[in-house]
């Protein structure tokens, strides 16, 4: 039996239900969610993050697309308030983008600044982040949103190595990581490499969500909608 954690996406855990009755995201495995731009990938991972937080599963969140403020606002739009989790340090946020815009928030124990064009620094912060979270709860979630931006700012093969190291670290500590990637933004070698590194692959195209690969189950798909409460799978 493959133990799963709740995705938080209505319909997803049913869609991924296996013969032995479990459904959701297989615990302690790595997932890639990809698809064209604006198809709900970030919403999916935010929903996944929020579900974890409300279940006492902390989250190591690496944001490369939206600074802290924007991230918080986006979450609130869907009625997923995260302030409390930032305060109690169960959301460990590595913000690699805010320094570019103005109004840099100050660092705290679980709010860490890094730099999108410095993967080495990001890896160091991830290392201490994993350590920090693991200490409190070995059952945790982790999100990188998104690999696309990391790839855009850095040498691609270096990012592949960094992502590999990230997955190894989170995995070793017992966490469940998800990486977001926008389809066709890197060359096909990099895209294939990224897919080969993870256990599960989810693709969204605006209309349907495809489980292209998942530990313990065969390929599946279902239409989905983006509602005021996030993604809902029919």
């Amino acid at each position: 039996m493959i133990p799963c954690i709740e995705s938080g996406i209505p319909g997803f855990d049913e869609l991924t239900r296996s013969n032995d009755g479990t459904g959701g995201i297989p615990e302690n495995t790595a997932t890639l969610i990809y698809g064209p731009a604006k198809t709900g990938k970030s919403i999916f991972t935010n929903q996944f993050t929020y579900k974890g937080l409300t279940n006492d599963e902390p989250c190591l969140y690496i944001t490369t697309d939206n600074g802290y403020k924007q991230f918080k606002n986006t979450m609130e739009e869907f009625n997923w308030p995260i302030e409390e989790y930032i305060d109690n340090n169960s959301l460990y946020l590595i913000d690699t983008i805010s320094d570019i815009s103005k109004g840099k928030p100050s660092q705290s124990e679980s709010f860490i600044q890094s730099y999108i064009n410095n993967p080495t620094d990001i890896m160091v912060k991830i290392g201490s982040g994993v350590h920090y979270i693991y200490k409190n709860n070995p059952r945790f979630r982790s999100v990188i949103d998104s690999a696309t931006t990391l790839l855009a700012y850095n040498e691609n093969m270096l990012i592949i190595r960094v992502l590999k190291a990230y997955l190894m670290r989170v995995n070793e500590a017992g966490g469940t990581p998800i990486i977001v990637y926008t389809q066709d933004t890197a060359d096909s070698i990099i895209e294939t490499m990224s897919k080969s590194m993870v256990d599960n692959i989810i693709r969204v195209d605006g209309e349907k969500l495809y489980i292209e690969a998942m530990k313990g189950i065969e390929r599946r798909s279902s239409p989905y909608q983006i509602t005021d409460n996030g993604i809902v799978i029919k």
Binding site: G127, K164, A165, M168, R169, N171, E172
Partner: peptide
Amino acid sequence: GISHLSGG
């Protein structure tokens, strides 16, 4: 050949 990447 890979566990060394996870730190420990």
